[in-house]
Design a protein around this nucleic acid. Sequence first.
DNA 1: GAAAAACCTGAAAGCGCTTACAATAAGCTA
DNA 2: TAGCTTATTGTAAGCGCTTTCAGGTTTTTC
Lengths: 336, 336
Amino acid sequence: MNIYDIARMAGVSIATVSRVVNGSDKVSEKTKQRVLSVIEEAGYTPNVFAQGLGLNTMHTVGIMVPRIDDMYMATAVSYLEQNLHKNGYECILSCSGFDLERKQSHASMLLSKRIDALILVGSTYAGNGASSQQTDYIRAAAREVPVFVINGLVEGDNVYASISDDRKATFEVTKSLIERGRKRILFLTDSQSYSAQQKMKGYEQALTEAGYPVLGELKLRVARSKIHYVRDLLLEYKALQYDSVVATEDTLAAGALKYALAKGMQVPGDISIVGYNNSVVAVASEPELTSVDGRLEQLCTDTCEHLLQVLKGEKESVPAVDIVSAMLVKRCTTDF
Amino acid sequence: MNIYDIARMAGVSIATVSRVVNGSDKVSEKTKQRVLSVIEEAGYTPNVFAQGLGLNTMHTVGIMVPRIDDMYMATAVSYLEQNLHKNGYECILSCSGFDLERKQSHASMLLSKRIDALILVGSTYAGNGASSQQTDYIRAAAREVPVFVINGLVEGDNVYASISDDRKATFEVTKSLIERGRKRILFLTDSQSYSAQQKMKGYEQALTEAGYPVLGELKLRVARSKIHYVRDLLLEYKALQYDSVVATEDTLAAGALKYALAKGMQVPGDISIVGYNNSVVAVASEPELTSVDGRLEQLCTDTCEHLLQVLKGEKESVPAVDIVSAMLVKRCTTDF
DNA sequence: GAAAAACCTGAAAGCGCTTACAATAAGCTA
DNA sequence: TAGCTTATTGTAAGCGCTTTCAGGTTTTTC
């Protein structure tokens, strides 16, 4: 069942069928209706490969995430997919992991599928000197299709970023803790992503502005964002003194909370804890975690909007970097 | 940069280039090397559309999930994507929601992209009478490509299912509760999926075998799997008496746990609670939830294996229904 | 009512690749 | 070395669609 069959059945040429299918206005209403009814009746669907061959696009965008079994990423993909689908685009998903080599290979595999654009969620490293090669593959990809980065910053032509203001949010949180008299604030992270780096900067800035020293011993990094990993890590550092925790992820905060409760501490009395991402874990914890909401939905909406604009050829109206401010969600693990 | 350019540069015909690219063995080693080096040098990638036009496949499989911002689905997609990617397939992701009409439209959109196979995760309804139209679109899809269902049961030609034995697992759990003297066991669910139905059957069977009545009042359904929804629902039914909870999802169990703790009850002393899926939420809760692990990874591995076999033309060796037994993970909300 | 303009439609040339078939070169056998 | 088989390569015919260009109709204009 192809365009020739339809043309024959409708008594027109394939050119006319093609015009009808593509909604060209240069077809008389009468012919159009006839062709449409034949198409309907025959259940004809154009062959996307043939379409793609001519047009060199298949209305597909690639989404690359380090991993999808992570609420943050999954939520991002959910927003993106929904929004793009609504606009007639399908999403090819690729879980690249955190390894540079795999990222590169996944990216080129996606590009070989002739995607119209590429979206990267998280996991890009800051663009300072040495690590610039970490993002070279992104700039390479951007030479073929526009690239959109969510919560990562990559400088380059044809790459657009939407990031939440994690630095500022973490700054505010840390500042609030200090104002409530907290002296030793533990910074707990699980990655070196751009966003994690920004959070750390905010944390340090608040300490500095308050005249506190930035202590290396109070910055802990967990191998993976798993509650038990955190617990084990804190157990390892059991001599460490701290009266509050700023975590870059809810799961980390949940781990710290568990550990504190197990030690018989009062939360938030003896220790205040702040998570990040405002996920289920924040609500599942007992007491429920105060958490920063990075406004992921907004980031995704913005990204899709920008993507559609760029694909429509309206590059000029799209900012290279779009910053969305984060929001504190106060719950029970802090006294503010 | 196309096959003609490469052919010219290497001084061979396009047929030979094509053979080299596709790894045909009918090319002399010498020519092969020459062509390969030209391809390498020129950075040539075959145009997938043109390939697709000829072969009518693009090595792509469609994955349809009701929603991806749900740990269970996200984890499934993660396993699937990784496994398929490793075998040279890309995944087009589609989040269809729970609405039949949307499912149908998403499925046909995927099919129009000429996917090689379709994978559905969860959310199919049992095939009994009235609701068979709920799965008609699946059988329709199966007429075009093989369809693989994870944790759903659909009868039809060219559709294969991998399901975990939720009925048995829930039966065992309920039986254990009964053996520990629990008399009024609350069944908490959030969906009518095949899998949820199976769980309910297991629950009922255990009650029946123990000579207990199956009480409608002890089966509660929450609109969505959100901790607060559960709390609100239980508050609404606050007169209801029960000494244990069997939930079809960890989040539901977490909600029940929160409610019980808020009422000052001892867990598992006054009330035992069992979750399902063995997710982060189970571990994040305090005390940690006993939960059933549905062996999702196994289901996904099986599915991919079957898929590859079917695409290789080895239909015969693939079972129409593959059952994986579930596993109880004992933690702190039960006394067994 | 004839020329000009506007409107529709069709023929045909690609798009870049795979592959059946034909052709040629090379290797054997007797 | 003639005659045959085998290994390698090339030719050309699609795959199903979009779109340019040209031809044919109808409508408008004076």
